[in-house]
Design a protein around this nucleic acid. Structure first.
Lengths: 341, 341
DNA sequence: CTGAAAGCGCTTACAG
DNA sequence: CTGAAAGCGCTTACAG
């Protein structure tokens, strides 16, 4: 109860505040008898230490912040599960911060870290004007920041990160589409500011080029990472002079919108048009038809990213930096088939 | 930069730490000239105040915590947007805490609040063994807690809350199903521990009773609030001796699973079986067929809930308590039609 | 094992 | 307008 401080407990127990503190934090250093008195006083007051004071005094919070683009993105369910799993075994609490509707985030993250509100941060979003600010304030870039899933601007590439090889995965999907017989393959990507989808786009282009397939004008189109953006992009693709036989969406979220829009145009999937996604969110297997996509080991990414953050927090000098790749998997379901024309 | 404290800045600027503090917090109380010196020193050091110390000293954090079941739940996207919108105009930051994979949450919420890590909490989940603990530590239940969306156990019903009338909405949907000609209506609900779906279940039962329709054994079935749980529930419903002509799912998430499973059984929707959802998440309009569901004004709930929390924080005595209802809406799409037999 | 005391980094009356 | 000082609630060497 906020109404009692360590002083009250000390008075009630008839000991010094130092002893109360020791009773709670290092009970083995306190005699059985004294501890009993303190415990009794704690119980009677309902005392719980002011964590702000504790953290302030100790110089650490045992709190880790994860920054993600938006609550409501199904992809993060599993990543968070992984993060929590290892956080819990290490006595850390995790708190989440959204980026999407929130312009000042870069600042805020920087200052939270730097001003000790948090012991470390996990970046599951590539906060845009981040590099300069954070790095400037960090100096030697030893700030305990680890990047998960996301690709990050060049200045930040020294940060430890855990991710799949997005470009390779996108190439693999494109190759698969090609192997099914597709030659006219379009891609719905993210905004040009999205480094994540940029990597996937690169993979797609590489595979197309390797197969000597042409990427026509307008075939790489921005779906804004949203369902509605993808629907608009799909309409554009379908009404273009040269219609693709397959559409590779850089995220399942967009694939869901694309799928809807293709059907709305009275085209069948995969009969008339094949659609592929990316991420394997839980909705991907319940679309109609179920989505062929790339699966990321989300839980594992979460675990690894948290472990590396812990390493950084404990010993930033010796902690490994640089990217760590984790395997992806091509999940073949029913939204891709051979082209009919 | 964590390496500099207010002392360093003071020394560099040739003023006292008090003046540095005033320069940053109440610049109007500092002379133009002094302020310039301080600002310069701040710039040169990259100083940013230790927020932990600030909050500790001030006795408040300007931080609000929202507790939700899982960050991957699409329903919360809009609620968060609303919360943020008002938080930002009031100088509050918001931080999110997940409940789902996290047993100790009730404790943690209690202690975060009570131990001053947070100025208030918004509960978007009904944390299970919450009542006793929080209330016990709160005494007069004036803790700045506001409940959003969720229904809450009786002990907590004095807490301010903002929500739709779940029972009424569920009745309305059931009435709509009945009006379409359905007589055999089943419901996929949540676990019995879920008060939220319990309310929806109540609404369903009331409407059935009012229409003198029978709820057969096994027709109210637990879908666990997940896609897979709903699929299993759907299989049970389809294989039961007495198959319903319509299935009302207590959440869209479950409706999506149900829809998939009905189709997997080679039944058509709404031709053979009608399906209704609840929540109107963004995926509800892109299922095939698009889902008839109940829409909640999620953004508005977020705004209102944050406003009421602010009231509580500022003046807990005079702040209103009790439930505030917000209108829902029946969204008719294509997953419900008249029964064919 | 325990107490007295210093000090973490700030803010804010209080004098001047 | 500015400085000196008290104090927020803890933790943790340091003596004893």
């Amino acid at each position: 109860m906020a109404d009692f401080s360590i002083k009250d407990v000390a008075r009630l127990a008839g000991v010094s505040i130092g002893t109360v503190s020791r009773s709670m934090n290092t009970p083995e250093k306190v005699s059985q008898k004294t501890r009993a008195k303190v415990e009794d006083a704690v119980r009677r007051t309902g005392y719980s230490p002011n964590r702000l004071a504790q953290s302030f005094r100790r110089g650490r919070t045992n709190l880790v912040m994860v920054v993600l683009p938006s609550v409501g993105d199904p992809f993060f369910t599993e990543v968070m599960r992984g993060i929590r799993a290892v956080a819990e075994t290490s006595g850390y609490s995790v708190v989440i911060e959204e980026t999407q509707f929130n312009t000042m985030t870069a600042d805020k993250i920087g200052s939270m870290l730097v001003s000790n509100q948090t012991d470390g941060v996990i970046l599951l979003a590539s906060v845009s004007p981040f590099g300069t600010e954070i790095m400037a304030s960090g100096g030697k870039q030893l700030l305990p920041i680890v990047v998960g899933c996301e690709t990050v601007s060049p200045e930040l590439s020294a940060l430890p990160s855990v991710q799949i090889d997005n470009a390779a995965a996108a190439s693999e999907m494109t190759d698969y589409l090609i192997a099914q017989g597709h030659r006219r393959i379009a891609m719905i990507s993210g905004q040009s500011s999205s480094l994540l989808t940029k990597d996937r786009e690169i993979g797609y282009r590489q595979a197309m080029q390797a197969a000597r397939l042409r990427v026509e004008d307008g075939w790489v189109i921005d779906g804004g990472l949203t369902i509605n953006g993808a629907r608009a992009a799909t309409r554009a693709l379908l009404s273009g002079k040269s219609r693709p036989s397959a559409i590779f969406c850089a995220t399942d979220e967009m694939a869901i919108g694309c799928l809807r829009e293709v059907k709305a145009a009275s085209l069948s999937v995969p009969g008339d048009i094949s659609i592929a996604g990316f991420d394997d969110i839980r909705y991907a297997e319940v679309t109609d038809p179920p989505l062929t996509t790339i699966s990321q080991p989300a839980g594992e990414i979460g675990e690894r990213v948290m472990r590396r953050l812990l390493d950084r927090i404990k010993d930033s000098e010796s902690a490994s930096s640089g990217r760590e790749f984790v395997p992806h998997e091509l999940v073949i379901r029913e939204s891709v088939a051979a082209p009919t024309n």
